[in-house]
Amino acid sequence: MSLVNESISEEFILLGFSDRPWLELPLFVVFLVSYILTIFGNMMIILVSRLDAKLHTPMYFFLTNLSVLDLCYTTSTVPQMLINICSTRKVISYGCCVAQLLISLALGSTECFLLGVMSFDRFVAICRPLHYSVIMHHRRCFQLAAACWISGFSNSVLQSTWTLQMPRCGHKEVDHFFCEVPALLKLSCVDTTANEAELFFISVVFLLIPVTLILISYAFIVKAVLRIRSAEGRRKAFGTCGSHLIVVVLFYGTAIYMYLQPPSPASKVQGKMVSLFYAIITPMLNPLIYTLRNKEVKGAFKRLIARAFMKLTFSSRSCFWSLCFIIAIEI
């Protein structure tokens, strides 16, 4: 019981780049701007996808899930990072560290499979267009999304439990910006070979297998798109799939670099910078990639703004005539 109480009252020191204080102000600005853009961009995609009936399709259902993931993922890490940069004591409580580890790992693992499901959706839409509504019906979309979320949270619970059970022998300095499995394993005072092997195996399952399936899907997609006679049809298909491929390269490339490369002292600083990329930059870029290259989303956003403006105008006119009526009665 005393060991449990000791862990609960424990604090971790998040070093980040405290040995390079001249980097803290630029990093604070980058983190803050990226977080604001992430919140605004992903909220816009969620609202537009839900409020516009033309976007009630499997593609935008999965895109909404991705936006929810990115919102929650950044919120689990960035606010604490901003607080620590501004503070002289760069600490995080044991409870907050556990919550951060569980949530960020669960959402990151979920996104690994979700991007694979999104590539499968594009494969069916382009390679099997006549059977698309039969294959990607509402119930199946929900089942695929639920499987991604369940697998992600199951992986998080297992890995977090194994990581937190490792004895630390009083080590509290986490050489990272937030609580992540590789950084916490380095605090252990016992041999972590088994944990690192388990982490490597699970990373292969959650990273390399989806990437392989995505590449196979897009090989078939490219083959099918090249058969389209219409230049406009080819352009639209490549535009939609191109957005997804950019997201895939950004997310999986940085995650594979972080979790599947052999550990070395020279890669320590690079690892921290790479983790910032997939934890902060990628969630910010996802809405920009999907909206700037997607006419449907931009059109839906314009329609949403037009409806809001019309309602505001009608409400203002109603208030004006109501005020005139009240004045007339008083006179």
Rank of each mutant, 00 (worst) to 15 (best):
F200K: 11
N195M: 15
V297E: 05
E111G: 09
A146S: 14
L304D: 05
G271D: 14
V211F: 13
L3V: 01
I8P: 02
C97N: 02
E24L: 15
P21C: 04
L260Y: 00
C72L: 14
N84W: 00
S18G: 01
D19L: 10
S34E: 04
D175R: 04
L312M: 11
L260V: 00
I150N: 01
F277P: 01
V157S: 00
F31W: 09
S188T: 02
R128D: 07
L69K: 00
K268F: 10
F61E: 07
L63P: 07
L245T: 05
K302T: 08
F301L: 14
T212F: 15
L158A: 10
L215G: 14
F301E: 12
L185P: 00
C241L: 05
A255K: 14
P167Q: 06
E11Q: 13
G271F: 04
V134M: 12
T64F: 07
L323C: 09
V225P: 03
L292V: 07
K186S: 13
A146T: 15
V174G: 03
H171Y: 02
R227F: 06
T163Y: 06
L105V: 07
P283A: 10
H171A: 15
D121K: 02
C96I: 07
G239T: 13
S93A: 02
W22M: 12
L14D: 00
R139I: 12
V157A: 15
V91E: 08
N286T: 13
A237C: 12
T161S: 10
L185K: 00
K311S: 06
K272R: 14
L63T: 11
I8G: 02
M166W: 03
Q143K: 09
L285D: 09
I221Y: 08
W321M: 11
E296H: 13
S267D: 12
A255D: 02
G239Q: 14
V117D: 04
T282E: 13
D19P: 05
A279Y: 03
L37K: 08
S203E: 03
V4R: 12
R234M: 09
F61T: 12
A255I: 00
L276H: 07
E6F: 03
W321C: 08
C148W: 07
C112K: 01
C97P: 00
G95T: 10
I92W: 01
A53W: 10
C86Q: 11
V248S: 11
F123G: 05
L312K: 12
K90A: 01
G41F: 07
K90P: 02
A99G: 13
T240S: 14
T212E: 08
L32M: 12
F238R: 08
Y94V: 00
I214P: 08
I202Q: 13
C86W: 05
G239I: 02
E232L: 12
P283H: 11
S154L: 15
I45V: 15
V174R: 02
A183W: 01
L245Y: 09
H176D: 15
F301A: 11
E180Y: 05
S67N: 03
